[in-house]
Design a protein around this nucleic acid. Sequence first.
DNA 1: CATATTATTAAACACTGTTTAATAATAGAA
DNA 2: TTCTATTATTAAACAGTGTTTAATAATATG
Lengths: 208, 208
Amino acid sequence: MTKERQLRKQEEIRSIILGAARDIIEKEGIKGLSIRKITNAIEYSPAIIYHYFKDKNEIIETIVEEGYIRILNSLTVVERNEKQPEKEIKEVFSNYIKAALDNRDEYMTVMLNDDPILKQRTTILKKGISKSSKTMALLSETIKRGVEQGRFSECDVELTAQVMWTSAFGLIMKLMIEKDIAEDQINALIETHFKTLFSGIMIRKEEL
Amino acid sequence: MTKERQLRKQEEIRSIILGAARDIIEKEGIKGLSIRKITNAIEYSPAIIYHYFKDKNEIIETIVEEGYIRILNSLTVVERNEKQPEKEIKEVFSNYIKAALDNRDEYMTVMLNDDPILKQRTTILKKGISKSSKTMALLSETIKRGVEQGRFSECDVELTAQVMWTSAFGLIMKLMIEKDIAEDQINALIETHFKTLFSGIMIRKEEL
DNA sequence: CATATTATTAAACACTGTTTAATAATAGAA
DNA sequence: TTCTATTATTAAACAGTGTTTAATAATATG
């Protein structure tokens, strides 16, 4: 057997393990995943896992990273809207929010697990930070454009961009907690959220 | 021994168990809590727990509820600010956010644990929903007042109130994730967040 | 064919939460 | 006080968890 074929065989079993793990996570969530459940499903002994993975965390990390990358990939450049830059911004967030909702477990794990798993997942986090900061820069630019063309009021663009992120994060969390929301309802919530966010409620801004 | 004294004795041991549990949670987080850690600390056998509590969840629920109530208690009526209702709103949120940050574990558990623990914690959730909806009503009223006095622009007050909550939730989560932030920095972030939220960025609102 | 490498597992270890049945301690009644 | 009934406490086990060790089976390479 050639070395390559051997490596392919190894990769195959690795992906069989990951496949079983994905199935379990889909049905029972990340917390429902256990080494013995995986090995029962693939009819191997529990110890086999440690021949293909360092530990259980490596399995979870791998799967979480896949989902997180799907989310990051949603952060693509959207069609430029010269007249209504706010539509551009809303579309970027809308894509991101939907991708996050499609990968709940993974998003939650990346975002708020400070426990065993994500201590040294620097790789995945770096990717996230890199992509997010690029998106943030793009967002700032769009806001700046809006200000320059007199459509947006004068503001600290970086700060405004950050508040938008924070606020969108809250919306994502809210939508994730209240599960079983219909697609069109999600769209409506995103719509009104950003509408309110853009418009603000103050009339005399100079007083703030 | 009178029946009362007996009950007092029981309550005493219950609170000793809870005290030990609190210590462990403070040091190692809720996930670090274990029955055997508790019973080692109080020098009892593991089985004793089940004489004073239904199960481990009841202990966690009790402690989480304590913290959550502290957060809910922060939702008190603030001094009315007739001229600047936005200051009133910001103060309400500011209190709430700080209370949430002071009770991280509890807040996180109540908010985003759909797993074993919070399935039947209807009691605690009802309290939360009741208090939150009262606060929400108050918030709506304040916004309405602002609109009527011409300080805030015309808007769907309930919707605006909801967006504010969502957005504040995002801010809380952000602040919780990025731990080790100084008190004054937190204040600054709250300040700018609500400033941006109030002002919005659109100039021609009628176009939205 | 023999050897070296790799794959796989049985068994154990140290943890979890929880239950059962037995025992120790104490309360109230005679 | 003594006896009984109640309560408090525990030892031991069960069924889980992740992980490690050492032995074995399978395969590749010389």
